[in-house]
Amino acid sequence: MTPSDLQQPVLLSLLGVGFATAFLHAALPTHWLPFVLVGRGQRWTLPQVLGAVAASGLAHIATTAVVGGLIVAAGLVMDRWVSGVLPWVSAGLLILFGAFYLGRAVLRAPIMAGGPSLALSEPTVSHAAAFWGLVVMMAVSPGEVLLPIYLSQATEGPLVLAALTLAFAAGTVLGMTLFTVLARAGWSVLRLERWARYEGVVLGLALILIGLLVLLRPH
Rank of each mutant, 00 (worst) to 15 (best):
M1K: 01
M1C: 12
T2Y: 08
T2R: 07
P3Q: 03
P3T: 01
P3C: 02
P9H: 03
P9I: 05
L11G: 06
G16V: 13
V17C: 01
F19C: 01
F19E: 05
T21H: 06
F23T: 00
L24W: 12
H25V: 11
A27D: 03
A27G: 15
P29D: 13
H31Q: 13
W32I: 11
W32T: 07
W32Y: 09
P34K: 05
F35S: 09
F35W: 02
V36I: 13
V36Q: 00
V38H: 04
G41W: 00
G41I: 08
Q42N: 06
Q48N: 04
V49R: 06
V49Q: 00
V49C: 07
V49L: 08
L50E: 03
A52L: 07
A55T: 11
A59F: 12
I61A: 13
A62G: 13
A62N: 09
T63R: 07
T63A: 04
T64N: 04
A65F: 13
V66F: 14
V66L: 15
G69F: 00
G69N: 10
V72L: 02
A74L: 14
A74C: 06
G75P: 14
G75I: 06
M78Q: 05
D79F: 02
R80L: 15
R80W: 08
G84F: 06
V85A: 12
W88K: 10
V89Y: 06
S90V: 11
A91T: 07
G92R: 01
L93E: 10
L94M: 13
I95P: 01
I95Q: 01
I95L: 09
L96Q: 08
L96P: 00
F97V: 08
G98D: 11
A99P: 06
Y101M: 11
Y101N: 15
R104M: 12
A105C: 12
V106R: 12
L107M: 06
R108M: 14
I111K: 10
A113D: 13
A113P: 04
G114Y: 04
G114E: 13
G115L: 02
S117Y: 03
L118Q: 14
A119C: 07
L120R: 08
P123D: 04
T124W: 11
T124P: 10
A130I: 02
G133S: 14
V135W: 08
V135G: 02
V135P: 14
V135T: 06
M137A: 09
S141F: 09
S141I: 03
P142T: 11
P142F: 08
V145S: 07
V145G: 03
L146T: 00
A162Q: 06
A162N: 11
A163W: 15
L166C: 15
A167G: 10
F168K: 03
V173W: 08
G175D: 08
L178Y: 06
L178C: 09
F179D: 00
F179M: 05
V181G: 00
R184K: 07
G186Q: 12
S188M: 07
S188E: 14
L192E: 12
L192P: 10
R194W: 11
R194F: 02
W195G: 05
W195P: 05
A196N: 15
Y198G: 09
Y198F: 11
Y198S: 13
E199D: 04
G200K: 01
V201T: 05
L205P: 10
L205Q: 02
L212M: 15
L212V: 14
L213S: 07
L213R: 10
R217H: 10
